[in-house]
Structures are given as structure tokens and as C-alpha cells.
Simulated assay, not measured.
Amino acid sequence: MSKAIDTTLAPQYFQKFPVHIHKDEPVVKEGSSAAVKMFERLVPEKDTRSHAVGPYGDAYAICYPEGDTEKTKLAGEIIEALWMYDDIIEALPHDEAALEHATVKQMLAGNKDGKAPGRKTLMTSIFRDARDRMMALDPKGSPWMIGVLRQYLTEYDGNDNTYNDIEEYATFRTLNVGFRIMSGFMQWTTDIYLNEEETQITKDFYMASGRVMALTNDYWSWEMEKRESIDRSAGIRNAIPVLMKQFSLNEKDAKIFAKGLTVDAEEYMWKLGLDLKKTGSETIKKYVDAMILLMGGSGFWSATCPRYNTAQK
């Protein structure tokens, strides 16, 4: 049973999603910590700032508070490794980044011995055993989740476009922000799998949830991204500069605009979720509840974490 976090202790958290933390948070934390240590060993010259550290606990323990402990621990390790891996290859030209993603996709497909197309074999080797470890914990659900991972890697760097329209950008960012990964592991850790009909019924709710995560992440990560400017030649991938350009806004007003878009997206997601809970199957009801906790965990961590809110050394 997870424990509720009092979000009033962090007044900057402006969303209304409930936030819980996993009962075995210290165990879950071992997963993300292992990924950080692995990258520090394999790529010591790179900055391996944690994507999980926060004042209220491990990010994955907050995003997946009702997940199976061992699966949540492994999910945190894999996601943390993906985020740090993306931090490193963000500086690469698009073609080179695509090759690195192809390397990881081969490993997730079970091809450990073939020649990897990417060059950074040490960096990508962290994913070598991910498939086997997932299958050992959940032989039935893991093939689906591995497919989600491989699809994400295909979509993530599918283009190097710039965007001048917030709606076009938000559509792109819903895929690029990693929502497919985060929501997929939410289902994997809780054993919530939708059939084809349920997937179709929840499609609008799924896309609305992705929009919330995309806009929320952009809002809170902007100060870090603006300061570091680490993205590729396409420029910083964030809603705020898109809004500045599209509507000729200064930075402060664009942030307020982005915050309003986030609140509007959340309201729409809540409405769709409530409607599904009135008419949907028991599986759909569990899915909606777990997604709401994921949105709360993701947003609350972003609003409070040192990665986005203070200079982290």
C-alpha cells in the first residue's frame, strides 16, 4: 500500500493530481542508483546527473507507487539508464543518434552478439541484459513492454524538425517526452494490460495524458534547458520558445502561457478519466487510477527535483 504525499508542502506544485510514494521506496531507489553508478563507470567523462533524486523520494517510487516492488525497481533502472543515455547522445548529429538508438533496439530484440551499428558500445551495453531480466520477472507481459521500448526508440529521434506552432509541437512532444515509456512501465509494474477494445476506448485519455506530461515537463525543465542549451542543431525542444516565437511573447509571459496550457490539458484529462471510470471495465478503472498517480508523480517530482529547480553538481 502506497503512502500519500502532502503536496501542500510544495506550493509550487500547481496541479491537482494526487501524489503517492511506494511503500518500498528504499528498494525501488536501488534501481535508479544502479543505473547512475553504471554510467559513472562506463562513461566517467560525462555528467551523470540523476533523473530520480528528489526531496520527497525516488522519482520512480513516486511515479509507480502501486507497482510490484521488484518490477518497479527494474523499471527505474531501465528508465534512468535511458534518460542518461539520451542526455549523452542529445549532442550528437541526428544520423549518429539514430545509429545509437538502433544499437539499443538490437539489444532489446535479443541480439547481443551481432555487430552493433552504433559506435558507443560501452555506453549502450547497459541495456544488454534488460530483456532477459524483464522476462524473468514477467514472461507474459514483458514482450509487450519490450515492444514499447523499441517503438519509443524509433519515435524519439524520428525527426530533427523545428516547430513554430504550439499544437504541432505538442503533438510531437507527446511522443518525444518519453510518455510512451513512462505509461508503458506503469502498466508493466502494475500488471494492467488492456485488450484491443479497451485500448481503443482509452485512446483519447491516453493522448490527453501524454499532452499533460509533455507540457508539464517542458514547464519545469525550461530553466535548466535554457541554461545548458545541450540540444542538437534543431534547438532546444521546449514549448516556451515555441510560444515566444509564435505569439511574440517575452519569456515570462510565455511561461505563464505554458502553465495555462498545462492546466487546461489536465482538466481535459480529468474529464476523460472520470467518464471512463463511470462506464469502463474494471481494468480500465485501474488503468485510469494508475495513470493519474503517474501524472501526479511525474509532475510533483518535476516541480521539486534539484535537476530542474536548483544547480545540481
Rank of each mutant, 00 (worst) to 15 (best):
D86C: 06
A91H: 06
E30I: 06
V28S: 00
D68H: 11
T48N: 10
V27C: 04
A35R: 00
P44V: 00
E77T: 10
G31I: 04
S50K: 05
D68I: 03
L74G: 02
G57F: 10
P93T: 08
L42K: 01
E25F: 13
A52D: 10
R49V: 15
L74F: 06
A61R: 03
S32G: 06
E25N: 07
L82C: 00
A52M: 14
T48K: 04
E30D: 04
T48Q: 07
S33W: 05
K29L: 12
G76T: 10
V36M: 13
P26Y: 12
V43P: 02
A59F: 07
W83L: 14
E77M: 01
M84K: 02
R49S: 15
L42F: 06
E70S: 14
M38R: 15
P93A: 12
P44A: 13
V43H: 05
S50L: 07
M84L: 14
G31A: 03
D58Q: 07
P93V: 08
K71P: 08
P44G: 08
T69F: 09
S32C: 03
P65W: 07
V53P: 06
W83C: 12
K71T: 09
G31N: 01
E77H: 14
I79T: 02
A34T: 02
I88N: 00
D58Y: 09
G67F: 10
M38T: 15
A81H: 03
D86M: 03
T69N: 08
G67M: 07
R49L: 15
V28G: 02
L82A: 08
K29G: 02
T48S: 10
V27P: 01
L82R: 04
A34F: 02
L42N: 06
V36N: 08
E80R: 00
A34S: 15
P55H: 11
S50D: 11
E45H: 13
A34N: 04
R49F: 02
Y60G: 10
R49N: 14
V43R: 15
A34Y: 03
R41K: 13
Y64A: 01
K71Q: 07
A52W: 03
R41M: 13
K23H: 14
G76I: 06
D87W: 07
G57T: 10
E30T: 09
D24R: 07
K37F: 09
E40C: 14
F39G: 01
D68R: 08
A35V: 08
G76F: 00
A34H: 06
H51W: 15
D47Q: 15
M84I: 12
E25C: 02
S32A: 11
E77Q: 14
A35C: 10
K73F: 11
K46E: 12
C63T: 15
S50F: 08
M84T: 11
E96N: 07
W83A: 12
H94P: 01
V28Y: 00
K46S: 15
S33N: 11
A81C: 02
C63V: 15
E66Q: 13
A61V: 00
R49C: 09
L92G: 11
H51Q: 08
G76H: 03
S32H: 02
S33D: 00
I88H: 01
G57Q: 08
V53K: 10
L82Y: 06
D58A: 12
I89V: 10
P55A: 05
I89T: 04
A35S: 07
G76N: 01
V28R: 01
V28A: 02
G57A: 03
A75I: 05
S32D: 03
A75N: 01
I79C: 08
E45F: 10
I79D: 04
Y60D: 08
S33Y: 05
K71G: 06
